[in-house]
Each structure stands twice: as C-alpha cells, then as structure tokens.
C-alpha cells in the first residue's frame, strides 16, 4: 500500500458516497445513468469473486464488500425506491455493446485461461468503459448537477491515482500488470474531457453545462 493507492481507494469510496448522498438527499436519481450503475455492479461482482477463495487482508475484504453492497444499494434506489425519478428516456445507451466486446476481449487477452482470471480480466475491461452510459446521458441532457459532477470527478480521479500507484509499484517493487495498466489508462482518458469541464466550470462555481 502506498499513498497513491490509498488516495485512489478513498477517492473511489468518496465517489460512491457522493452518489448515494445525492440520491438520498434529493430523493431523486435524475441525471444518473442506471446503465452505468448496472455495469459497475457487474464489474464488482465479477472481480471480487475471490472473496470466497482467497483472504488478502481485512482492508481488502472490507473494501470489496463495501463496493459490492453500495453498488447493489444504488441500483435498488434507482430502480425500486426512486424509480419515478429515473431518467429513463435519456439513459438509452446499449450496454450489450460494451458487455459483449469486453467479455470476448477477456477470453482473448488474459493472464491465465481460468474462470476466475477471465472474469477478473472482464471486470477490468468493463470498468474502463462502464462510465460511457453516464457520459452519454450527460451529453444528451447537456448538463449535470454539481454533486453529480463531484461524483464523476472523484470516480475519474480514482483510476488516475491508480496509474500513479502502478508507476510507483513498477519502480519500487518491479510489479506491473499490463492488463490493468492498459485498461486503467483507457479509463482515465475517457474522463479527460469531463475533467477539463469540471476544472474550468464546476470549480469556478458554475454549473456543468455543455456548449450547445
């Protein structure tokens, strides 16, 4: 564990908490993509299957359980409790266009051809693109509430901090995982346009609004 890794995990946790606060306080999931949330739930479940096979640390187990349970809770809030506020019409991204290619790629490019390893690889590829339905929703509506912007910023920062963690680990421990690094870089790149808008608009007190 190094400072970048810890900051990345905390940023990830903050993102999830911000999202839950937004939905709970406003009693609404408007502006949030249920499709992205479903993809994230698939990511956590398929990645953390090793919870039942391997014990790594209390921290590791705790965080995995938090990520799985909060993503299920988010889906419950969106599709059951605050269903009426869900922006169904704008959330029209077809997730099978992400699920199928990620799974095929995981079958082709993986570290070992075993079920757990393929599902881990699939989750890494899927996580890289799981935010696309959310970004698509923001681009369709042309704006995002500020708390949604903070959520997206924290979520994007998490993988960017992991990139620093991987650079650190490469030099400090000689450790690297090309699949994670490649997918993490793609994931971070997808947020760049949003980061730019966040820094130039939201941090200056303006609403995140896309140019018409």
């Amino acid at each position: 564990m190094n400072i970048f890794r810890l900051a990345g995990d905390l940023s990830h946790l903050l993102a999830i908490i911000l999202l839950l606060i937004k939905i709970w306080k406003t009693r609404s999931c408007a502006g949030i993509s249920g499709k992205s949330q479903i993809l994230f739930a698939i990511v956590y479940v398929s990645r953390y299957l090793d919870l039942v096979t391997t014990f790594i640390s209390v921290y590791n187990t705790f965080m995995k359980l938090v990520f799985i349970s909060t993503s299920v809770a988010t889906i419950y809030l969106m599709y059951v409790k605050f269903k009426a506020t869900y922006d169904h019409n704008h959330d029209s991204f077809r997730i099978e266009f992400l699920l199928v290619p990620c799974f095929l790629l995981a079958l082709l490019i993986n570290n070992a051809f075993t079920p757990l390893e393929i599902l881990w690889t699939f989750s890494i590829y899927l996580e890289a693109v799981a935010i696309l339905p959310q970004l698509f929703l923001v681009s369709k509506t042309g704006e995002a509430e500020s708390i949604t912007s903070h959520y997206l910023f924290a979520l994007g920062s998490y993988r960017a901090l992991y990139l620093l963690n991987w650079i650190y680990r490469y030099y400090a421990e000689g450790h690297y995982d090309l699949i994670a690094i490649f997918a993490g870089a793609i994931q971070t790149i997808l947020y760049c346009d949003f980061f730019y808008l966040y820094i130039t608009k939201v941090l200056k007190g303006k609403k995140l609004q896309l140019p018409a």
Binding site: R5, D9, H12, D50, T53, T54, I56, S57, N60, M63, K64, F67, N111, A112, T114, L116, E117, W120, Y162, N165, H175, D177, A180
Partner: peptide, 10 residues
C-alpha cells in the same frame, strides 16, 4: 504475471 490469489488491488 500475478495470479488472482495475489491481487491485492481493488
């Protein structure tokens, strides 16, 4: 490569 059993990252 790192086997799944040794992956400590989240």
């Amino acid at each position: 490569h790192v086997p799944t059993s040794e992956k400590d990252e989240l």
